[in-house]
Amino acid sequence: MVDKSLELFECGHRACGGCGPALAARLILKGAGADSIVVASTGCMEVFSTPYPETAWKVPWIHSLFENASAVASGIEAALKRQGRTEKVLCICGDGATFDIGMLCISGAFERGHDITYICYDNEAYMNTGVQRSGATPYDASTTTSPAGKASFGNKRPKKDMPQILAAHGAPYVATASVAYPNDLMQKVERAVETPGPCYLQIHAPCSTGWGFEGGKTMEIGKLAIQTGLWVNFEMVDGEVVKAKKVVRKPVNEYLMAQKRFRHLFKPARNEEEIAKIQAIADANAEKYGIDIELKK
């Protein structure tokens, strides 16, 4: 059961003020409960929460490497089963660890069908190393390795569709969530943890430092992503989308203008062509997941 009063992630961690991933960590543990073992990848969250000996984690926690959290979790789950133990095993990893370097281990763990919940806190770039693009970086976002310039509009590729990839592995429960909707997030964590087999949850976790906005706006940015259709909160059961959050969509420029990583689309001149391409991504999302609320005239 989700327990909002449960505090398993402690004060004193070194995340930036208003950190989306830090908020995600707190909410995840409220949804998962104390009977959990967390496996972390190398990344921002690992670094801001566990400088020896100051761990912020009040549940058992392990970090091995950048790319192997799901394999480590496989071993933990097998050992627990062998020992007759009942703790739930969660991976909490960044998007670089998930979309890019960890793909092999994730695919293996999901194919083998371990009873684990893999949670990606998605801040859409390699933030720990200084905002480099990952497979989760959205189209046209300017990062330090996909900078906007005279011959570039930023990241050239759309975001990889990880939920579909893991659904295709036969994952019984795949969902997306956002720190901007905490109750929904906690409920999805609980459902993922309670569902036997490998489940995947991808959490939109805005990063004020990497995306370029004030820390107090973390949830507002998260809400705008959903309100514009650039992020869709949905649930898939056995590969079928069973639920998606419906919205009265706003134009994408409201989301883009609020972040420095898209500033080049508006300055020195508004780039209608590129903004239209991003609008088309949102339109495609809206159609695919059926999120538009039809307003009565």
Partner: peptide, 30 residues
Amino acid sequence: ICPEGCIREDDDGMPVVDFEYCKGCGLCAE
């Protein structure tokens, strides 16, 4: 929603900020 988890409720349900840890991000105010 405090990313620090440094706000608690007192016996009356009023939020109390622990200023030893509050980074002043302003998410609560927003």
